[in-house]
Amino acid sequence: MIIKILLISYFILFGIYLMFVANSANIRAWRKIAIFLLGAFAIFSILFPEITTNAADWLGVGRGADLLFYLTTVAVIYLGLHSYIRYRQIENRMVILVRKLALIEANQQLSIKEPTIGPKDSNTKNLPI
């Protein structure tokens, strides 16, 4: 069943993607391509509804509706994890800000000279997923 191979390789690739998010320019480009292909597929499947069924047949899925359901599942999982990672990044930036403010305030009260806030946090780097 081709659909099984496709879904499994999707999850493997997604895992690799999560581990090596560093090359972000490429990933952004691929995402744009994916969105374009999805849009094209959507328009064609509206114009020629039978192509989802044909695609499903070709992939070894029972019905076109099932194929759409699988694709939706894949998209939802991507969205969920993507949001979670993004949320953690934003939270980390906020922590750095709040901590810096707290130390500045506390040092002002004690009138200690220079606040040292520790080594640059690696979490600050910008990861545009």
Binding site: M94, V95, V98, R99, A102, L103, A106
Partner: peptide, 14 residues
């Protein structure tokens, strides 16, 4: 005691 204050709640680890 010296008071260091987070402007918003961040959690015990922070």
């Amino acid at each position: 005691a010296k008071l260091v204050q987070h402007a918003i709640n961040l959690g015990q680890g922070a």
